[in-house]
Amino acid sequence: MTDTRDELETRGPASGPPPLLRFVAAKVGGGVVSLFLVAVLGFFLFRVLPGDPARTMTRSTPVSAEQLAALRHRFGLDQPLYLQFRDFLLNLLHGDLGTSYIYNRPVAELIVERIGPTVLLVGTATVLAVLVGLWMGTRAAWRQGGAVDRWFTSVGLTLWSVPTFWLGLLLLMAFGVGVGPLPGLFPVAGMSSPDVPPGVVARVLDVAHHLVLPCLTLVAVIYAQFMMVMRTSLLEEMGAEYLTTARAKGLREDLVRRRHAVPNALLPTVTLIFLHLGLVVAGAITVETVFSWPGLGLLTYEALRVPDLPLLQGTFIVLAGSVIVMNVLAELIYRLLDPRVRDS
Protein backbone atom coordinates (compact mmCIF):
# COMPACT_ATOMS: atom_id res chain seq x y z
CA MET A 1 0.00 0.00 0.00
CA THR A 2 1.27 3.41 -0.74
CA ASP A 3 1.49 5.88 2.04
CA THR A 4 0.23 9.24 0.95
CA ARG A 5 2.43 10.96 3.49
CA ASP A 6 5.49 9.66 1.71
CA GLU A 7 4.41 11.62 -1.29
CA LEU A 8 6.68 14.41 -2.31
CA GLU A 9 9.50 15.54 -0.16
CA THR A 10 7.99 18.98 -0.10
CA ARG A 11 5.19 18.28 2.32
CA GLY A 12 4.93 21.55 4.20
CA PRO A 13 4.58 22.07 7.92
CA ALA A 14 1.18 21.46 9.46
CA SER A 15 -0.74 24.62 8.69
CA GLY A 16 -1.71 26.62 11.73
CA PRO A 17 -2.16 25.39 15.29
CA PRO A 18 -4.14 22.20 15.78
CA PRO A 19 -7.83 22.89 16.32
CA LEU A 20 -7.48 22.25 20.03
CA LEU A 21 -10.49 24.33 20.99
CA ARG A 22 -12.78 22.41 18.68
CA PHE A 23 -11.48 19.15 20.06
CA VAL A 24 -12.06 20.21 23.66
CA ALA A 25 -15.52 21.53 22.83
CA ALA A 26 -16.45 18.29 21.07
CA LYS A 27 -15.27 16.14 23.97
CA VAL A 28 -16.93 18.28 26.64
CA GLY A 29 -20.11 18.44 24.56
CA GLY A 30 -20.10 14.67 24.25
CA GLY A 31 -19.64 14.42 28.00
CA VAL A 32 -22.63 16.68 28.64
CA VAL A 33 -24.84 14.59 26.36
CA SER A 34 -23.74 11.43 28.18
CA LEU A 35 -24.48 13.08 31.53
CA PHE A 36 -27.99 13.95 30.37
CA LEU A 37 -28.59 10.38 29.22
CA VAL A 38 -27.36 9.15 32.59
CA ALA A 39 -29.84 11.43 34.34
CA VAL A 40 -32.69 10.13 32.17
CA LEU A 41 -31.62 6.54 32.73
CA GLY A 42 -31.25 7.17 36.46
CA PHE A 43 -34.76 8.53 36.70
CA PHE A 44 -36.54 5.76 34.81
CA LEU A 45 -34.39 2.92 36.09
CA PHE A 46 -35.48 3.57 39.65
CA ARG A 47 -39.09 4.11 38.64
CA VAL A 48 -39.46 0.67 37.10
CA LEU A 49 -38.25 -1.08 40.23
CA PRO A 50 -41.07 -3.02 41.84
CA GLY A 51 -42.45 -1.91 45.18
CA ASP A 52 -44.26 1.16 46.45
CA PRO A 53 -41.86 3.70 47.94
CA ALA A 54 -44.50 5.06 50.33
CA ARG A 55 -45.08 1.59 51.75
CA THR A 56 -41.34 0.99 52.01
CA MET A 57 -40.90 4.15 54.05
CA THR A 58 -43.59 3.15 56.48
CA ARG A 59 -42.80 -0.52 56.67
CA SER A 60 -42.35 -0.62 60.43
CA THR A 61 -45.36 1.45 61.48
CA PRO A 62 -49.01 0.88 60.67
CA VAL A 63 -50.38 3.82 58.67
CA SER A 64 -53.75 4.81 57.30
CA ALA A 65 -54.54 5.31 53.65
CA GLU A 66 -54.69 9.10 54.23
CA GLN A 67 -51.23 9.13 55.72
CA LEU A 68 -49.90 7.17 52.76
CA ALA A 69 -51.53 9.62 50.35
CA ALA A 70 -50.05 12.55 52.24
CA LEU A 71 -46.65 10.93 52.09
CA ARG A 72 -47.01 10.34 48.35
CA HIS A 73 -48.00 13.93 47.87
CA ARG A 74 -45.04 15.17 49.86
CA PHE A 75 -42.57 13.25 47.70
CA GLY A 76 -44.44 14.12 44.50
CA LEU A 77 -45.25 10.47 43.87
CA ASP A 78 -48.91 11.24 43.07
CA GLN A 79 -48.00 13.26 39.99
CA PRO A 80 -47.99 11.81 36.46
CA LEU A 81 -44.60 10.38 35.45
CA TYR A 82 -43.79 13.11 32.89
CA LEU A 83 -44.38 15.84 35.48
CA GLN A 84 -42.21 13.99 37.96
CA PHE A 85 -39.53 13.76 35.28
CA ARG A 86 -39.76 17.48 34.49
CA ASP A 87 -39.47 18.41 38.16
CA PHE A 88 -36.58 15.97 38.52
CA LEU A 89 -34.65 17.58 35.67
CA LEU A 90 -35.34 21.11 36.89
CA ASN A 91 -34.27 20.20 40.40
CA LEU A 92 -31.19 18.46 39.08
CA LEU A 93 -30.14 21.67 37.35
CA HIS A 94 -30.33 23.39 40.72
CA GLY A 95 -28.28 20.66 42.34
CA ASP A 96 -31.31 19.24 44.12
CA LEU A 97 -31.33 15.44 44.03
CA GLY A 98 -34.49 14.99 46.10
CA THR A 99 -34.95 13.92 49.68
CA SER A 100 -33.78 10.66 51.16
CA TYR A 101 -36.53 8.46 52.59
CA ILE A 102 -34.46 7.01 55.37
CA TYR A 103 -32.51 10.04 56.46
CA ASN A 104 -35.26 12.49 55.63
CA ARG A 105 -32.57 14.90 54.47
CA PRO A 106 -31.62 16.26 51.02
CA VAL A 107 -29.71 13.63 49.05
CA ALA A 108 -27.23 16.20 47.76
CA GLU A 109 -26.32 17.14 51.32
CA LEU A 110 -25.77 13.51 52.27
CA ILE A 111 -23.59 12.87 49.24
CA VAL A 112 -21.46 15.97 49.84
CA GLU A 113 -20.98 14.87 53.43
CA ARG A 114 -19.85 11.38 52.44
CA ILE A 115 -17.80 12.20 49.37
CA GLY A 116 -14.84 13.55 51.35
CA PRO A 117 -14.03 10.33 53.23
CA THR A 118 -14.51 8.28 50.08
CA VAL A 119 -12.20 10.40 47.97
CA LEU A 120 -9.68 10.29 50.80
CA LEU A 121 -9.76 6.52 51.06
CA VAL A 122 -10.25 5.38 47.47
CA GLY A 123 -8.31 8.26 45.98
CA THR A 124 -5.27 7.55 48.14
CA ALA A 125 -5.55 3.85 47.43
CA THR A 126 -5.86 4.36 43.66
CA VAL A 127 -2.91 6.72 43.49
CA LEU A 128 -0.77 4.32 45.52
CA ALA A 129 -1.93 1.35 43.46
CA VAL A 130 -1.12 3.19 40.22
CA LEU A 131 2.37 4.10 41.40
CA VAL A 132 3.12 0.65 42.78
CA GLY A 133 1.54 -1.09 39.79
CA LEU A 134 3.34 0.92 37.14
CA TRP A 135 6.68 0.56 38.89
CA MET A 136 6.29 -3.18 39.36
CA GLY A 137 5.01 -3.63 35.82
CA THR A 138 8.07 -1.86 34.45
CA ARG A 139 10.41 -3.95 36.57
CA ALA A 140 8.69 -7.20 35.65
CA ALA A 141 8.69 -6.51 31.93
CA TRP A 142 12.28 -5.34 31.76
CA ARG A 143 13.49 -8.76 32.89
CA GLN A 144 10.72 -10.86 31.47
CA GLY A 145 10.73 -14.38 32.84
CA GLY A 146 13.23 -13.50 35.55
CA ALA A 147 12.76 -14.06 39.26
CA VAL A 148 11.39 -10.55 39.83
CA ASP A 149 8.88 -10.99 37.02
CA ARG A 150 7.69 -14.35 38.30
CA TRP A 151 7.31 -13.12 41.86
CA PHE A 152 5.61 -9.86 41.01
CA THR A 153 3.23 -11.50 38.58
CA SER A 154 2.19 -14.40 40.78
CA VAL A 155 1.80 -12.34 43.95
CA GLY A 156 -0.10 -9.64 42.08
CA LEU A 157 -2.47 -12.10 40.43
CA THR A 158 -3.11 -13.87 43.71
CA LEU A 159 -4.03 -10.65 45.50
CA TRP A 160 -6.14 -9.54 42.56
CA SER A 161 -8.18 -12.74 42.68
CA VAL A 162 -8.69 -12.71 46.45
CA PRO A 163 -12.20 -11.60 47.52
CA THR A 164 -11.95 -8.06 48.90
CA PHE A 165 -14.05 -8.64 52.00
CA TRP A 166 -12.04 -11.72 52.92
CA LEU A 167 -8.71 -9.91 52.64
CA GLY A 168 -10.20 -6.98 54.52
CA LEU A 169 -11.39 -9.21 57.35
CA LEU A 170 -8.05 -10.99 57.45
CA LEU A 171 -6.13 -7.72 57.79
CA LEU A 172 -8.68 -6.52 60.27
CA MET A 173 -8.11 -9.54 62.45
CA ALA A 174 -4.35 -9.58 62.11
CA PHE A 175 -3.59 -5.90 62.52
CA GLY A 176 -6.77 -4.44 63.97
CA VAL A 177 -7.83 -6.94 66.59
CA GLY A 178 -4.48 -8.58 67.01
CA VAL A 179 -3.51 -12.23 66.79
CA GLY A 180 -1.82 -14.08 69.63
CA PRO A 181 0.96 -11.97 71.09
CA LEU A 182 0.49 -9.36 68.37
CA PRO A 183 -1.47 -6.42 69.70
CA GLY A 184 -4.05 -4.60 67.58
CA LEU A 185 -1.97 -1.97 65.80
CA PHE A 186 -4.68 -0.14 63.93
CA PRO A 187 -8.24 0.91 64.68
CA VAL A 188 -10.87 -1.49 63.40
CA ALA A 189 -13.68 0.83 62.36
CA GLY A 190 -14.58 4.35 61.37
CA MET A 191 -12.47 7.27 60.29
CA SER A 192 -11.66 8.97 63.58
CA SER A 193 -11.55 8.27 67.27
CA PRO A 194 -13.95 10.04 69.61
CA ASP A 195 -11.20 11.01 72.05
CA VAL A 196 -8.79 12.90 69.84
CA PRO A 197 -6.64 15.50 71.51
CA PRO A 198 -7.26 18.97 70.09
CA GLY A 199 -5.07 20.30 67.28
CA VAL A 200 -4.95 19.81 63.53
CA VAL A 201 -1.84 17.60 63.52
CA ALA A 202 -3.32 15.18 66.00
CA ARG A 203 -6.54 14.88 63.99
CA VAL A 204 -4.71 14.31 60.72
CA LEU A 205 -2.59 11.63 62.32
CA ASP A 206 -5.68 10.03 63.78
CA VAL A 207 -7.41 9.87 60.40
CA ALA A 208 -4.22 8.54 58.78
CA HIS A 209 -4.09 5.85 61.43
CA HIS A 210 -7.63 4.82 60.61
CA LEU A 211 -6.86 4.96 56.90
CA VAL A 212 -4.06 2.38 56.93
CA LEU A 213 -6.00 -0.89 56.91
CA PRO A 214 -8.80 -0.08 54.44
CA CYS A 215 -6.30 1.61 52.14
CA LEU A 216 -3.93 -1.35 52.29
CA THR A 217 -6.78 -3.72 51.45
CA LEU A 218 -7.81 -1.67 48.43
CA VAL A 219 -4.28 -1.23 47.11
CA ALA A 220 -3.56 -4.94 47.44
CA VAL A 221 -6.66 -5.81 45.46
CA ILE A 222 -6.36 -3.32 42.61
CA TYR A 223 -2.65 -2.68 41.97
CA ALA A 224 -2.23 -5.86 39.93
CA GLN A 225 -4.40 -4.46 37.12
CA PHE A 226 -2.06 -1.54 36.60
CA MET A 227 0.94 -3.81 36.90
CA MET A 228 -0.31 -6.27 34.30
CA VAL A 229 -1.30 -3.58 31.80
CA MET A 230 2.02 -1.80 32.21
CA ARG A 231 3.90 -5.07 31.91
CA THR A 232 2.12 -6.09 28.69
CA SER A 233 2.40 -2.66 27.22
CA LEU A 234 6.10 -2.39 27.98
CA LEU A 235 6.73 -5.89 26.63
CA GLU A 236 5.20 -4.74 23.37
CA GLU A 237 7.58 -1.80 23.25
CA MET A 238 10.62 -3.87 24.21
CA GLY A 239 11.16 -5.13 20.70
CA ALA A 240 10.73 -1.67 19.21
CA GLU A 241 13.49 -0.55 16.93
CA TYR A 242 13.80 2.87 18.50
CA LEU A 243 15.13 1.15 21.62
CA THR A 244 17.93 -0.35 19.53
CA THR A 245 18.59 3.17 18.25
CA ALA A 246 18.72 4.45 21.82
CA ARG A 247 21.13 1.70 22.83
CA ALA A 248 23.28 2.31 19.77
CA LYS A 249 23.56 5.92 20.87
CA GLY A 250 25.30 4.71 24.00
CA LEU A 251 22.52 5.32 26.54
CA ARG A 252 22.59 3.39 29.79
CA GLU A 253 19.87 0.75 30.11
CA ASP A 254 17.97 2.68 32.75
CA LEU A 255 17.95 5.75 30.50
CA VAL A 256 16.78 3.66 27.56
CA ARG A 257 13.94 2.50 29.75
CA ARG A 258 13.09 5.83 31.35
CA ARG A 259 13.45 8.13 28.39
CA HIS A 260 12.30 5.92 25.56
CA ALA A 261 10.42 2.78 26.53
CA VAL A 262 8.31 3.95 29.46
CA PRO A 263 6.85 7.11 27.87
CA ASN A 264 5.52 4.97 25.03
CA ALA A 265 4.37 2.12 27.23
CA LEU A 266 2.50 4.50 29.55
CA LEU A 267 0.03 5.50 26.84
CA PRO A 268 -2.28 2.46 27.10
CA THR A 269 -2.36 2.73 30.89
CA VAL A 270 -3.69 6.30 30.84
CA THR A 271 -7.17 5.18 29.85
CA LEU A 272 -7.24 2.53 32.55
CA ILE A 273 -6.01 4.90 35.25
CA PHE A 274 -8.63 7.51 34.48
CA LEU A 275 -11.38 4.94 34.33
CA HIS A 276 -10.36 3.99 37.85
CA LEU A 277 -10.19 7.59 39.02
CA GLY A 278 -13.76 7.91 37.76
CA LEU A 279 -14.78 4.99 39.91
CA VAL A 280 -13.12 6.51 42.98
CA VAL A 281 -16.35 8.32 43.85
CA ALA A 282 -18.26 5.07 43.80
CA GLY A 283 -16.20 4.17 46.77
CA ALA A 284 -15.54 0.62 47.55
CA ILE A 285 -18.75 -0.76 48.95
CA THR A 286 -17.09 -3.86 50.38
CA VAL A 287 -14.12 -2.17 51.98
CA GLU A 288 -16.16 0.69 53.40
CA THR A 289 -18.65 -1.78 54.84
CA VAL A 290 -15.99 -4.02 56.35
CA PHE A 291 -14.19 -1.09 57.96
CA SER A 292 -17.34 1.00 58.60
CA TRP A 293 -15.76 3.84 56.67
CA PRO A 294 -18.32 6.65 56.46
CA GLY A 295 -18.09 7.07 52.68
CA LEU A 296 -20.34 6.90 49.65
CA GLY A 297 -19.94 3.16 49.40
CA LEU A 298 -21.39 2.67 52.85
CA LEU A 299 -24.15 5.16 52.01
CA THR A 300 -25.02 3.21 48.86
CA TYR A 301 -25.05 0.02 50.85
CA GLU A 302 -27.48 1.54 53.35
CA ALA A 303 -29.66 2.94 50.56
CA LEU A 304 -29.78 -0.44 48.85
CA ARG A 305 -31.07 -2.21 51.93
CA VAL A 306 -34.20 -0.12 52.14
CA PRO A 307 -34.28 0.62 49.08
CA ASP A 308 -34.08 4.39 49.32
CA LEU A 309 -34.85 5.44 45.74
CA PRO A 310 -33.83 9.13 45.75
CA LEU A 311 -30.57 8.29 47.49
CA LEU A 312 -29.75 5.48 45.06
CA GLN A 313 -30.66 7.71 42.16
CA GLY A 314 -28.41 10.44 43.51
CA THR A 315 -25.40 8.22 44.06
CA PHE A 316 -25.99 6.66 40.65
CA ILE A 317 -25.88 10.05 38.94
CA VAL A 318 -22.83 11.27 40.86
CA LEU A 319 -20.95 8.05 40.14
CA ALA A 320 -21.79 7.98 36.44
CA GLY A 321 -21.01 11.67 36.19
CA SER A 322 -17.56 11.25 37.67
CA VAL A 323 -16.76 8.39 35.31
CA ILE A 324 -17.79 10.55 32.36
CA VAL A 325 -15.81 13.55 33.56
CA MET A 326 -12.71 11.42 34.08
CA ASN A 327 -13.06 9.88 30.64
CA VAL A 328 -13.20 13.31 29.03
CA LEU A 329 -10.12 14.24 31.04
CA ALA A 330 -8.38 11.05 29.93
CA GLU A 331 -8.95 11.89 26.29
CA LEU A 332 -7.61 15.41 26.77
CA ILE A 333 -4.53 14.15 28.59
CA TYR A 334 -3.92 11.37 26.09
CA ARG A 335 -3.82 14.03 23.44
CA LEU A 336 -1.13 15.86 25.36
CA LEU A 337 0.96 12.72 25.80
CA ASP A 338 0.75 11.28 22.30
CA PRO A 339 1.65 13.64 19.47
CA ARG A 340 0.20 11.19 16.96
CA VAL A 341 -3.30 11.63 18.38
CA ARG A 342 -2.91 15.39 18.36
CA ASP A 343 -2.86 15.46 14.58
CA SER A 344 -5.60 13.04 13.78
Binding site: A240, E241, Y242, T244, T245, A246, R247, A248, K249, G250, L251, R252, H260, P263, N264, L267, L337, D338, P339, R340
Partner: peptide, 23 residues
Protein backbone atom coordinates in the same frame (compact mmCIF):
# COMPACT_ATOMS: atom_id res chain seq x y z
CA UNK B 1 28.73 2.96 25.64
CA UNK B 2 31.40 5.55 24.99
CA UNK B 3 32.31 3.88 21.70
CA UNK B 4 28.69 3.56 20.57
CA UNK B 5 27.67 6.42 18.28
CA UNK B 6 30.97 8.27 18.90
CA UNK B 7 33.10 5.75 16.96
CA UNK B 8 30.35 4.20 14.88
CA UNK B 9 26.73 5.19 14.43
CA UNK B 10 23.87 3.46 12.69
CA UNK B 11 21.25 4.52 10.15
CA UNK B 12 18.47 2.04 10.67
CA UNK B 13 15.97 0.72 8.21
CA UNK B 14 12.48 2.19 8.14
CA UNK B 15 13.09 5.30 10.16
CA UNK B 16 9.45 5.41 11.28
CA UNK B 17 10.15 2.67 13.78
CA UNK B 18 13.73 3.57 14.50
CA UNK B 19 12.69 6.97 15.84
CA UNK B 20 10.82 7.37 19.10
CA UNK B 21 7.26 8.40 18.13
CA UNK B 22 6.59 10.57 21.18
CA UNK B 23 9.71 12.74 21.09
Amino acid sequence: RAARWASASVVFQGAMHALNPVR
